[in-house]
């Protein structure tokens, strides 16, 4: 192996950057999609309408009982079957992430919605707003804001979890690091570098979450 070779990292940077872009894109799209889906599921769980409540609860319990890795595999094979055509690995991974993560975001949004007093919704209805308008303009913006730190924390976890797309051959940041490490025989350099990057990004983001929380409780 020899001495620690920084050159091995710098030479691989453009390639690793491509991987990071894929990781970030997957994280961003998955988070956006699963927050929307999770919010819909949360509204279903809180709707007081039995069949909708059942669907929401089942969804959450189902996906929270499965390993994410299995879900990614599953959609890698399932999505092309359902779509009846070739689907690239990124799209099928995205679908898997959205459906899976929605279960977690659902529970976050549910407690966020429940944290808003009934009086707020009453005030909306009393002004003549419909249910959907009351949710959209009054309850959800407040729920979202109250839950922002928790939503971000979940998104940090999601970012780490995107490294699992390794198994379907997507060149995310982690996979790119592994590829370079094996190609160049520079395992130590690349794995330490990857760990440092994940640590700095996630730790930095979690500090930001702490800062947000402090600011909100002022």
């Amino acid at each position: 192996m020899g001495a620690f070779d920084f050159g091995a990292i710098t030479r691989a940077l453009p390639y690793l950057w491509d991987g990071m872009q894929l990781s970030l894109l997957l994280t961003g799209l998955s988070a956006a999609g699963s927050i929307v889906l999770g919010t819909i599921l949360a509204l279903m769980r809180l709707s007081g309408i039995k069949p909708l409540q059942w669907i929401g609860a089942t969804w959450v319990n189902f996906f929270r009982s499965l390993p994410l890795l299995l879900v990614i595999f599953w959609f890698y094979f399932l999505v092309p079957l359902i779509a009846q055509r070739q689907v690239d690995a990124f799209q099928s991974a995205l679908v898997g992430f959205v459906l899976f993560e929605a279960a977690y975001y659902c529970e976050i949004m549910r407690s966020g919605i429940q944290s808003i007093s009934r009086g707020q919704a009453w005030a909306g209805y009393a002004l003549g707003l419909r249910y959907s308008q009351t949710m959209r303009f009054i309850v959800l913006p407040q729920a979202f804001r109250n839950m922002l730190p928790v939503l971000l924390t979940q998104t940090i976890i999601l970012f780490q979890d995107t490294s699992l797309v390794f198994v379907v051959g997507l060149a995310d940041f982690m996979t790119s690091a592994v590829t370079v490490a094996q190609r160049d025989g520079r395992l130590m350099e690349l794995y330490i570098f990857a760990a440092a990057v994940y640590f700095l990004m996630c730790y930095g983001a979690s500090l930001y979450v702490k800062f947000l929380q402090k600011k909100m409780h002022q």
Binding site: S117, G119, Q120, W122, A123, A126, Q142
Partner: peptide, 11 residues
Amino acid sequence: MVFQNFELFPH
């Protein structure tokens, strides 16, 4: 309608 706790929208 006017409520005991005002119920203005805080955001």
